[in-house]
């Protein structure tokens, strides 16, 4: 794999200290405000009564299966699709406000760009659409090509780019205007594992610079790692919204491995936990459900009190993917 296949996740060098301070000042102010949003295509209702607020400086994840209405909402936020009903404010203005659009960066799900353009021309054209001109535009294009690992590809036509390279040049065009709000629709799709990691690191870096990030992704790991809050949408309706860690009201499962499992041990551990069950895969292991981390000490004390030797005690954390699937399944039932 050539050098240019990797995104440079080093110093972004694009956001000045002043901008960081500006972003910090705006924290707590909504970046995206959606109230009772409804979108219908004829008789088909794609989005039904969706409301949420995304704060400035926040990384907000949008999750949902195919056809859930995620892309429709992203398209409404970017002005590609008109809403049927409700209110949508982006950076405190309606989306058709041109000055607001100057402060938004958008990477679409499918990087379908004009294939006859060279990478440099592509960025210059989109930079001019944002109002950039002359030397600052040239400098910005150079910076961004380096940032996304495409330095040296300035004169290469987009038609010869791989999907991963198109995704990178797409991200570069979304960053041309030093956006306050970055809307990313499946940014890691089409990238190899290494590319996905680099893209993830880059997004995390942008987040630390104070850019508000709206992330629509199927990569639940990315969402879990990057996002401060996550919304789950299904059949056009918002099911849950909150920080990934607390989004799902799930008891914590502890894996407890001991030298022997006795009736006394089960009784004592059962008294300080929500539920206890034997692990079918390991005869010396118990799966203990507790409400919080603090109860782990009580479980350890109960094991010792029963005279049993404790080998391991560790939380078994459900992945966001498991929780996501459970949420979708429970909504269907």
């Amino acid at each position: 794999m050539s050098k240019q296949e990797y995104i440079n996740t080093g110093d972004i060098g694009t956001i000045s200290t002043m901008r960081q301070e500006h972003h910090a000042e705006r924290r707590g102010v909504p970046a995206v405000q959606v109230e009772h949003l409804r979108k219908a295509y004829g008789h088909l209702v794609a989005v039904n009564d969706v409301s949420f607020v995304m704060q400035r400086g926040e990384a907000f994840g949008f999750l949902g299966p195919n056809g859930a209405g995620k892309s429709t909402i992203v398209k409404i936020l970017t002005g590609l699709v008109a809403l049927t009903d409700g209110v949508v404010q982006v950076l405190e203005h309606p989306i058709n406000h041109l000055d607001t659009r100057r402060r938004i960066g958008y990477l679409p799900e499918l990087p379908n760009f004009h294939r006859w353009l060279r990478a440099q021309e592509f960025l210059q054209f989109h930079g001019r659409l944002y109002g950039l001109r002359g030397a600052p535009l040239q400098e910005r294009c150079k910076e961004l090509l380096e940032l996304v690992g495409l330095a040296g590809c300035e004169r290469q036509k987009l038609g010869t780019f791989s999907k991963g390279m198109l995704q990178r040049i797409g991200l570069a065009q979304a960053l041309l205007n030093q956006p306050e709000l970055l809307i990313l629709d499946e940014p890691t799709s089409g990238l190899d594992p290494l590319g996905q990691r680099d893209m993830r690191n880059l997004i995390l870096r942008l987040k630390t610079e104070g850019i508000s990030i709206f992330l629509n992704s199927h990569q639940l790991g990315d969402v879990e790692l990057i996002c401060d809050r996550v919304a789950i949408i299904h059949h056009g309706q918002l099911l849950k919204i909150g920080p990934p860690a607390t989004l799902f009201d799930e008891p914590l499962v502890l894996e407890v491995r001991v030298n022997a499992i006795s009736a006394d041990l089960l009784r004592r551990v059962g008294a300080v936990s929500l539920a206890v069950q034997r692990d079918e895969a390991d005869p010396l292991r118990l799966l203990v459900e507790v409400q919080s981390d603090e109860q782990a000490a009580d479980v350890a004390a109960a094991v010792h009190a029963s005279g049993t030797r404790l080998f391991t005690l560790q939380p078994r954390r459900r992945t966001l993917e498991q929780l996501f699937l459970r949420t979708i399944e429970s909504s269907q039932t």
Partner: peptide, 13 residues
């Protein structure tokens, strides 16, 4: 072709 998806959200009517 989907090429309008990156042009229409830009600050132009």
């Amino acid at each position: 072709a989907g090429t309008f998806a990156v042009i229409v959200p830009k600050p132009l009517r």
